[in-house]
C-alpha cells in the first residue's frame, strides 16, 4: 500500500502532535513527505520547532533554591538509613 502525502491543511493540523511525537509512524511519514515538497509548511514547522525548544530552554532556567535542595536531600538521606 502506498501512502498519499498530506496536503498543507492536513500537515499543519498535525504540527503539535508531530512536535510532541504523538503521531503514528505512518502519519510521521506522510507529514515528512509533504514537508519535503512544500517550502511553506517546512518553514512553519521549522519555526515552531525552534520556538518550542526556546520556550523549553527558558522554562528550564528556573532553579531550586539551595536551601530547599539541602532540606530535601536531608530527608532523603534520613530515609535511606
Amino acid at each position: 500500500m502506498s501512502l498519499t502525502a498530506y496536503d498543507c491543511a492536513e500537515t499543519i493540523r498535525r504540527l503539535n502532535d508531530y512536535l510532541d511525537r504523538e503521531l503514528s509512524p505512518e502519519e510521521v511519514e506522510m507529514v515528512e513527505a509533504h514537508l519535503a515538497t512544500c517550502e511553506h509548511c517546512a518553514a512553519e514547522y521549522g519555526f515552531e520547532q525552534v520556538l518550542l525548544g526556546e520556550i523549553k530552554a527558558k522554562m528550564a532556567q528556573a532553579t531550586m533554591p539551595e536551601e530547599l535542595r539541602a532540606r530535601l536531600q536531608a530527608f532523603i538521606a534520613k530515609a535511606r538509613d
Binding site: I12, R13, E44, F47, E48, L51
Partner: peptide, 10 residues
C-alpha cells in the same frame, strides 16, 4: 488547530 500566530506575525 495551530494558529501559527507568531509565525504569521514574524
Amino acid at each position: 488547530e495551530p494558529e501559527v500566530y507568531l509565525y504569521q506575525q514574524c
